[in-house]
């Protein structure tokens, strides 16, 4: 039995952890930044409490580094609404999206990792 061919060029990294509560919440932005610098196509999706650093007034350096490296950063709109965060409250370079992006990526063969 052999595994299907996954794309090793495209990555979707899902961050669910609150950086103010988890000591390892830098892992995903740093991994994304490193992958992007190696020419990979990388997207971070923030979900659950992972959306908290998407707020413009709570912006964190590691996400900014990822954005500057060419990483696309998205935030789950449902998670934002659950926490009373309006789309207008988030960093302008982070886009609120539906969770469908995960299923789209998986169906497309994108390497998808949950943290």
């Amino acid at each position: 039995m052999s595994f299907p061919e996954y794309s090793m060029h495209k990555y979707l990294l899902i961050e669910s952890r609150d950086p103010y509560e988890s000591g390892d919440a830098e892992f995903i932005p740093n991994l994304a930044t490193n992958l992007a610098r190696k020419g990979k196509e990388v997207t971070i999706l923030l979900v659950q409490n992972g959306v908290l650093p998407a707020r413009a007034k709570a912006a964190r350096g590691e996400l900014q580094n990822a954005l500057e490296a060419g990483v696309i950063v998205l935030a789950d709109s449902f998670s934002l609404r659950e926490r009373g965060i309006a789309d207008s409250d988030i960093v302008s370079t982070i886009r609120a999206v539906l969770l469908d992006v995960v299923v789209d990526a998986m169906a497309d063969g994108t390497k998808t990792i949950w943290h």
Partner: peptide, 16 residues
Amino acid sequence: WKLAAASTNSLVIPTR
């Protein structure tokens, strides 16, 4: 392992 091998893609959602 068998399910993943026969699938288009897989996602592991681990606990903390």
